[in-house]
Design a protein around this nucleic acid. Structure first.
Lengths: 199, 199
DNA sequence: ATGTTTGCATACGGATACGTATGTTGTGTG
DNA sequence: CACACAACATACGTATCCGTATGCAAACAT
């Protein structure tokens, strides 16, 4: 709770996230973000030790806001079928603070592939996501190994969907990914819900 | 055919492609590439007008070498089933000049999402790829609309596979993508080949 | 042998970014 | 009212990169 009308570290972090989504990690510059905030470098170095500190704060924020929250929402859905559909909806249209999730995800993945520290942390997030997806799929009746394989397939397509959306590709139409989701549900050995697909 | 033992424009372009795969488009710097070639900037500006000219040459090279050639090879396979499996093999393990295809593809896609000119050209390549994939799938007996949808699904997963491989994710195991390919083949209305899956 | 052109290397100016050092302003406190 | 400190802004030095200008050696032509 800031007492005064002053800039908080999170303001810098969110502005940095927007720059990341717009131009990749190399576009996250202290002076550039300062300009978008109408501030100066002096202000930045008051709140952060240096640029690497900002980058770590960015990853922390993404890890919390874009992953844990997503999984929590799916858990609250109760029904795994609706949980899966909800994940698809979120993936297709989600925004946080007006920043497109697809562009953020793609930029962070590209970042992870060039930075060992981020790569390591990103890898753990990805494993947690895949494991959660596998558990959701498992409760549709698939056996453990199949559920794991299918969760990886779905995850692969999800990554592709994010990348396609980021480059405004025609592949990013909702029905392309939804087809996979609905096919997964329709072929489930023990579907817990039989709601009609929205297609 | 160079008469002397001298640097050719392609030497610069390939070195630039390697830098692109390693660090993204922003890592493609004239001075950096010159250093890896043991040359100087003066040499570069003898062969290229400026950095944008190098970038265009890079995209041209990728468009020729990484797309047209791939499709040509699949066409030569004759049998669409083997063509699809061949595409999967190429996608999973291909290298050109010792540069990992997955990292190149991911870097170019990220580049396309931030540069309008590259985005436009990339979009056309992607449509050509999808259309070709759809024709391959169509000759498995799927009707036109289904083949198009399935080709987009496969393409989505392929993009994901490239991204996963670039960040050395566990999702990049061969069997994950191969599952999709074999499932597509197994469910074909009119399969032209019945070779046993290698799994 | 000498001039010309090719294929570079070196040196420079300008722009941008990082990080630091220091100046300045507003707010609360004794 | 004086003072202290928080929250900045400004100015500076340094590094990196682009693009240009110029120097220079080796190959080729005559």
């Amino acid at each position: 709770m800031p007492r005064k009308n002053t800039l908080q570290p999170e303001d810098w972090t969110w502005a940095a996230m927007r720059a990341l989504a717009d131009g990749g990690i190399d576009a996250v510059s202290v002076e550039g973000i300062a300009k978008t905030l109408g501030a100066s470098k002096g202000s930045f170095y008051w709140h952060f030790a240096d640029r690497p500190a900002l980058l770590v704060a960015m990853f922390d924020l993404w890890e919390r806001d874009g992953t844990a929250d997503l999984i929590d929402r799916a858990k609250l859905a109760g029904d795994p079928v609706e949980g899966l559909r909800g994940l698809a909806r979120d993936a297709l249209h989600a925004e946080t603070h007006g920043i497109d999730v697809a562009r953020t995800e793609s930029a962070i993945r590209a970042w992870a592939s060039h930075d060992p520290y981020i790569g390591e942390r990103f890898s753990r997030v990805e494993e947690a996501r895949t494991a959660f997806l596998a558990s959701q799929i498992g409760s549709l009746g698939y056996d453990g190994a199949t559920a794991m394989l299918l969760s990886k397939v779905m995850h692969l397509a999800l990554i592709g969907l994010f990348a396609a959306r980021a480059s405004s590709s025609s592949l990013a139409e909702d029905e392309t990914y939804n087809f996979l989701v609905e096919d997964l549900i329709a072929r489930a050995p023990r579907p817990k819900s039989r709601k009609k697909p929205t297609t």
